[in-house]
Computed example of a mutant assay.
Amino acid sequence: MTRMQGTTPATGQARLNRRAIPNVPVVSHDGREWSFYDDLIRDQVVLVAFMSIGHDAESNCSAKMADVRKLLDRDPSDTTLFLSITVDPGADGALGLANHAGRSGAGGFCGPGEAGRWLFLRANPGDVDLLRAAFYVHRSLAPVPTGPKMITRSELLRMPPERAVMDCSMGLMRYGNEALDVWGAAPVRASAPDIAARLTWMRDAGAPRPRTRRRAGPFPAVLS
């Protein structure tokens, strides 16, 4: 995979709770190229999951996202974008990922603002590491440098699937409203209605609140 021209690491307003989200090149399952932050994260409400075709049978990550997508699609106004990023781009080739996306319910073009709104993404291995580091704190980003360290991608791929899904990046989905820089996480094993409810709240977090008229004057006395 070649790096797109003019793509640089995200700076300035690119953030995840004040940490930079890399603007690395990614390719979606339909063959389209994107700049990760500029095209897929900026001003979006997103659900981000790291997965691989080989691990999906154990983690059920894509199956869970499909269930959440069906719940959100009941609201035609929902614009939440789902991003599934493979941690094993070497094994998950373009055709394999496209077929897996179709089996999972993300067939056809489904970019920002389009019906479906679910992309399966591939990136260079080094860029996948940058994305995992941005969404999941590891030692170099932790307030205390000697704190917990995220499992490296190469270590992850050597693990049996039942152990790999215990890593935070494989066992937790990240969701957020980038325009507000408000982010959270949900276990992959959480129920689809629970994850959908969190995303609905995140989507509506920046919506203007209707102004209601308040009664003037003192509160009425309560007689006992």
Rank of each mutant, 00 (worst) to 15 (best):
L119G: 09
D75W: 05
M150A: 15
A179H: 12
G111P: 05
H138F: 07
D75Y: 09
C61F: 05
K64V: 14
R163S: 13
I85K: 00
P160E: 09
A98M: 04
G171E: 09
T80E: 05
H138V: 05
L81W: 10
C168H: 10
R158V: 00
R132F: 02
M65H: 00
S84E: 14
A133F: 01
M166Q: 13
G90H: 07
A133V: 01
R158E: 14
L83K: 06
P145L: 08
H100E: 02
G126E: 11
L95H: 11
A91V: 08
V137M: 11
R117L: 10
P89C: 02
G126S: 15
L72W: 05
P148W: 04
A101T: 00
A63C: 01
E162G: 10
C61S: 13
P112Y: 09
P161N: 10
A91I: 01
D67A: 15
A57W: 08
K70N: 11
F109H: 14
P112G: 06
A123L: 10
M166T: 07
P125F: 04
R117T: 01
N177Y: 01
R139Y: 06
R158H: 14
R69L: 03
R139H: 13
H138T: 14
G93S: 14
P89D: 03
K70S: 14
G171N: 08
T86V: 10
A106D: 06
R163L: 14
V68W: 08
Y136L: 02
L131C: 06
L157Y: 03
Y136G: 01
F135A: 07
E178N: 14
A134Q: 09
K70F: 07
